[in-house]
Nucleic acid binder design. Structure first.
Length: 403
RNA sequence: GCAGGGUUAGUGAAGCGGUCAAACACGGCAGACUGUAAAUCUGCUGGCUUAUGCCUUCGCAGGUUCGAAUCCUGCACCCUGCA
């Protein structure tokens, strides 16, 4: 505990699952796991005030090193006294390394990134090199800024320096995220690179900690890649698991239908006593699968992004408030929901706000969606504690996906 | 009253003899969104139970032409000058 960071498992469900509850301690507070970490890429959860994020039940927020490096500049966040102070979020914080942008601005630029197995694969799914805004080499990644096109270069060392300056409680190693459609040979090559980078991240963080002994402890999580291949995932789990990381992130393109299976391969290889974060998921079925396979925390842009476009979570699926049928529907988004939005506003009003492009619409929708997902995870945590997780999983998903 | 300009699908606005059911924008409808390139993107938007098909549209009524939203005549309304 001298580092200010720790993770303790409080209950293991068993019953053929790897599900568990735990407590993560960080310099900025505690996170009860499993937990959904709300994404606030640019040091703000889009359209939400910190009070609203807190009101929705969030325990932690995840920002992005690449975005803050570009704007306003990580040194500004450092001068402000760190991410938490800068954005007025007093609780625990994470930063992503910029690794995701290797994909989203690289081979996945302007492409659909998530996939279902069996989904039609056309030649449009991987961006041609000439169109990419991120090009990978052994040493790092050259980005063209999505803001102004200016060239920037990220290396594992720079990502660590940027994340160290930003000062989140948890930093992620800089990795290469591949597309499911990259061939096996490329996955092998990329994985070797991600592993070399993992070592360089550890070395750099060591240096930074030595150079700034008075800083609050920032945990470093290693990232397991390997796409959809069992041999690569297990190999990655062993390799990354053997390095002195404080916790682990499971990343990469994952076939949705095999998510639980893939996570399980990894978690069978990683040390059980450390925290496992899954990057970028939040659909209810994915949440249940991931937690069943041993995931402790996860983050996702989906609840807020989808909210800004009008979709809202209910126990019976995720409809779109823009639908003409909600024009004069004065019920709340979700009957019985105790979020601020549902306590005070109707579907008809929210539809009007979203249609009119009024920002308050994005705020209110985001409040509902983050609250809904967080509540779901709260319920899951409770069910693990009392041992009813598998029942909850079955009945909950059955209802959600029945229409 | 004279001269000139205008009237195009829900709105604005292209088109100025055939390739026009009619560009484009907005609006409308539907869909997508999983470590945020994302208040973004995609599709549809005259009718026909859906098609390399048919039918009806471009102020109204006539006419010229193989063929008109596009040319001519008359009418209606709007705008701008001059009286």
């Amino acid at each position: 505990m001298k580092s200010g960071f720790s993770f303790k498992i409080t209950k293991e469900l068993g019953q053929g699952t790897l599900a568990r509850t735990g407590v993560m301690q960080t310099p900025h507070g505690v996170v009860q796991t499993p937990a959904f970490v709300v994404v606030g890429t640019a040091a703000t959860v889009k359209a939400m005030l910190p009070e609203q994020v807190q009101g929705a039940g969030a325990q932690a927020v995840l920002a992005n090193a690449y975005h803050l490096y570009l704007r306003p500049g990580h040194e500004v966040v450092e001068q402000a006294g760190g991410l938490s102070k800068f954005m007025n979020w007093p609780g625990p914080t994470f930063t992503d390394s910029g690794g995701f942008q290797v994909l989203s601005l690289g081979s996945g630029y302007k492409k659909v990134l998530a996939m279902q197995s069996g989904q039609a694969i056309d030649e449009e799914v991987i961006a041609p090199v000439s169109e990419r805004r991120a090009i990978v080499d052994e040493d790092g990644v050259t980005f063209k800024s999505h803001l102004d096109g200016s060239p920037h270069r990220f290396t594992p060392e720079l990502s660590m320096q940027v994340q160290h300056a930003i000062g989140a409680d948890i930093m992620f190693a800089f990795d290469e995220l591949t597309s499911l459609l990259d061939p096996y040979d490329y996955q092998v090559e990329s994985l070797a690179r991600t592993h070399a980078w993992a070592r360089r991240c550890i070395a750099e963080v060591r240096k930074l900690r030595k150079a700034h002994p008075k800083r609050l402890y920032q945990a470093l999580f290693g990232i397991v890649q390997g796409a959809q291949h069992e041999d690569l995932r297990r190999q990655a789990g062993q390799f990354i698991g053997a390095l002195p990381f404080d916790g682990f992130g499971i990343g990469g393109a994952i076939e949705k239908d095999r998510l639980g299976e893939i996570v399980r391969w990894v978690n069978e290889e990683l040390p059980t006593d450390k925290l496992k974060h899954m990057l970028g998921i939040s659909e209810p079925d994915d949440i249940f699968e991931a937690i069943a396979s041993g995931i402790d925390t996860f983050d996702c842009v989906s609840p807020t992004r989808v909210a800004r476009n009008g979709s809202f979570y209910t126990y019976d699926g995720r409809p779109d408030v823009n639908g003409a049928k909600y024009r004069s529907d004065f019920k709340s988004l979700l009957d019985g929901c105790d979020c601020y939005t549902c306590q005070h506003y109707s579907r008809a009003y929210l539809r009007h706000l979203i249609k009119a492009g009024e920002r308050t619409g994005a705020t209110l929708m985001s409040i509902h969606n983050t609250h809904f997902i967080i509540k779901l995870v709260d319920d899951i945590r409770a069910s693990i504690t009392v041992g009813t997780f598998l029942d909850l999983k079955k009945t909950w998903l059955q209802r959600y996906y029945s229409n």
